[in-house]
């Protein structure tokens, strides 16, 4: 399972990552960050679909996305 971590304090809610994701699994959340931007999120339920292609991260103007790629395992994040 590959995964991404979106730094919600850096996200400005531009949603370019949503457009860039080839699997269309990133969505706009209903949460606001400290600056008042409605942040993007990858719901836990869709994380399995993530291939770790890093398209979202490359598109992100605020470099707010970190990407980990795993071949096949049950990696658990410890962030």
């Amino acid at each position: 399972m590959s995964r991404i971590v979106i730094d919600e304090q850096r996200c400005k809610g531009c949603l370019l990552c949503v457009e860039a994701c080839p699997k269309s699994i990133i969505v706009a959340s209903s949460r606001f960050n400290a600056k008042g931007y409605k942040v993007a999120e990858l719901p836990e339920a869709s994380m399995d679909t993530c291939t770790g292609c890093a398209s979202c991260a490359q598109m992100c103007p605020d470099v707010a996305i970190t990407v980990w790629r795993t071949a096949k395992s049950k990696a658990k994040e410890n962030e």
Binding site: K35, P61, V67, W68, T70
Partner: peptide, 24 residues
């Protein structure tokens, strides 16, 4: 468990919020 970091912020790029507008 072989998780590989494939994308992160380059070290020379400061880890701060930019003043740019959303989407810039």
């Amino acid at each position: 468990m072989s998780e590989q970091l494939v994308f992160t912020r380059p070290e020379v790029l400061a880890d701060v919020a930019t003043h740019y507008c959303p989407g810039c």
